[in-house]
Amino acid sequence: MEFAPSAADALRRAAEVRDPSLILILSDVNMPGMSGLDMLPKVRADYPHVPVIMITAYGDAETRRKAIERGAHALLTKPIDFALLRQEIDTRLEQAA
């Protein structure tokens, strides 16, 4: 498991992965420098097989639409329901397998 403090750092770390160990990306929508919504098309272009789950404090319809349109597999709102997060992770990993 890797943690990145920004979208740019996450993209750099993902590019360094040389094996199939990149199996899921969990990202906040609001991050310094580049939003998770702006990061999504880059992730989809470089890692189309890797599911992305987005998290946001702003679960409005427009944010949800943008996230799904740009390639997120799910959008969860804060405060995080950890049982739902676990279910989403398990579902995405099963689909990717």
Results as ranks from 00 to 15, higher is better:
Ala14Thr: 07
Met1His: 12
Tyr47Gly: 05
Ile25Gly: 01
Pro51Ser: 06
Asn30Glu: 14
Thr91Ile: 10
Met1Leu: 10
Asp28Phe: 05
Leu26Gly: 00
Ser35Lys: 06
Asp90Trp: 09
Asp28Thr: 04
Pro51Gln: 09
Ala72Tyr: 00
Ala74Val: 09
Ala4Trp: 00
Lys42Ser: 12
Val50His: 06
Pro48Ser: 01
Asp9His: 11
Asp90Phe: 05
Asp46Val: 08
Arg44Asn: 07
Glu2Trp: 10
Met1Val: 10
Ser35Asp: 00
Met31Asn: 08
Ala7Asn: 08
Pro32Tyr: 05
Ala67Thr: 05
Leu75Asn: 00
Ile68Cys: 04
Ala14Arg: 02
Ser6Gly: 06
Arg70Asp: 02
Ser6Phe: 04
Val29Asn: 01
Gln87Asp: 15
Asp46Ile: 06
Ala97Val: 12
Tyr47Asp: 03
Thr77Ile: 02
Glu88Lys: 14
Asp46Tyr: 09
Leu37Cys: 02
Ala10Cys: 08
Glu88Ser: 10
Met1Trp: 03
Ala96Pro: 03
Leu76Gln: 03
Leu75His: 09
Glu2Asn: 12
Asp38Phe: 04
Ala8Pro: 01
Ile25Trp: 06
Thr91His: 13
Arg12Gly: 02
Asp28His: 02
Pro32Gln: 07
Met34Asp: 09
Val43His: 03
Lys42Glu: 15
Thr63Met: 09
Arg70Ala: 01
Gly59Thr: 01
Phe82Gly: 08
Met1Cys: 07
Val50Cys: 00
Glu94Ile: 12
Leu26Asn: 06
Glu88Trp: 09
Ala72Lys: 00
Gln87Glu: 15
His73Thr: 12
Asp38His: 05
Ala67Asn: 02
Arg13Asn: 07
Asp81Trp: 07
Glu16Gly: 12
Ser27Lys: 03
Ile55Lys: 08
Ala57Glu: 05
Ile25Leu: 07
Ser21His: 09
Glu2Gly: 04
Leu84Ile: 14
His73Trp: 11
Phe3Trp: 13
Arg92Pro: 05
Arg13Leu: 11
Ile25Arg: 02
Thr56Leu: 06
Ile23Arg: 15
Ala4Phe: 07
Arg64Leu: 11
Pro5Thr: 13
Leu22Ala: 00
Leu26Val: 13
Arg86Ser: 14
Glu88Cys: 13
Ala45Phe: 05
Ile80Val: 13
Asn30Ala: 14
Met1Gly: 09
Glu16Asn: 07
Gly36His: 05
Arg12Ala: 10
Glu94Phe: 11
Arg44Gly: 07
Leu24Gln: 00
Phe82Leu: 13
Phe3Arg: 13
Ala14Ser: 07
Ser6Lys: 00
Gln87Ala: 15
Thr56Asn: 05
Ile25Tyr: 01
Asn30Asp: 13
Pro32Phe: 02
Ala10Arg: 01
Glu16Val: 03
Glu2Tyr: 10
Glu2Met: 13
Ala4Met: 04
Ile55Val: 14
Ile53Asp: 02
Asp19Asn: 12
Arg18His: 11
